[in-house]
Write a protein that binds this DNA or RNA. Sequence first.
DNA 1: TGCGATTTAATCGCGGGCGATGTAATTTCG
DNA 2: CGAAATTACATCGCCCGCGATTAAATCGCA
Lengths: 161, 161
Amino acid sequence: MKHDISKPEPDTARGLDTQLCFATYAAGLAFNRVYRHQLEPLGLTFPQYITMVSLWTKDGVTTGTLGEEVALETNTLTPMLKRMEAMGLLERRRDTADERRVLVYLTKAGRSLQPKADEIMRCVAEAAGFPMEELMRLTTQMQRLRQNLMDYADRNAPCGP
Amino acid sequence: MKHDISKPEPDTARGLDTQLCFATYAAGLAFNRVYRHQLEPLGLTFPQYITMVSLWTKDGVTTGTLGEEVALETNTLTPMLKRMEAMGLLERRRDTADERRVLVYLTKAGRSLQPKADEIMRCVAEAAGFPMEELMRLTTQMQRLRQNLMDYADRNAPCGP
DNA sequence: TGCGATTTAATCGCGGGCGATGTAATTTCG
DNA sequence: CGAAATTACATCGCCCGCGATTAAATCGCA
């Protein structure tokens, strides 16, 4: 062998600097922190805000459907929805046609937050500091990344050597 | 009725589909789930894995410095490091020169996990499903995004109308 | 019709993530 | 030198995220 391949493969580079998983993780924390402070006057957390955005688009959905929208399972969503119900933002009602289901409806108070939340959304989008076109492209790529990772998780491959 | 412009401004689009914050959040959850299952045999969580990657690069650092590396504050890091110490992956020692500081050192057991973790890292990087060049560009952009958001958080602007 | 399988939520326990607060060591400076 | 300010870490309480388990309603089918 002529070529020196003894180096430990910078192929998949090692430091955190070069890792997409860390960059995604850290950017997620940063989003969370920015939103935390902006949403604080509304009394919402970032995951709650995500949930409200989904419900503003369409409410009257089951817990499970909502969970798919916001990428959370019922073991996370149920307690969160209960807290939000206690805040008066939404109501949870058993589906009379199928008593297993719980349907989630926004209250007036819940709908009334949308304008303020929209303002914050625009603000944070600006804080992201990307021109609109690049921002959209980046969003698309992150969606593709998420889909690829979910597909991989479903394949359940053990990553053997 | 000529043109229907009554729609509410797709300016900064509304749905979760179009939001970078949600795409980042959801991709972060997806990474977390993939890593969770891959790391389970090693007994590591994803944040613990991140911490180990940092320590494999350089240990003997203070809790605070390590926190900067991994984007966590001491109120998150301290309990996590204690758990990892209990697992035998690292040691926490008071700096004799400055008793306020706690220095973190890897143990033999901690170092011994690196090869397996590297294998998993390569595996997940492949699962991300991007060609190397695009993956690097995406990583760079996410780092820039994070920096912009942190800068914005530091400016502490209230997002007034 | 009746009974097992499936679907849908809820619950529990543990590990992050962080604002607020506490505590001890060190530095600053009058 | 000594008190105040600063630094570095720890603690507490709350919220999310999820694997595992449970409970109840519905469905499928003999």
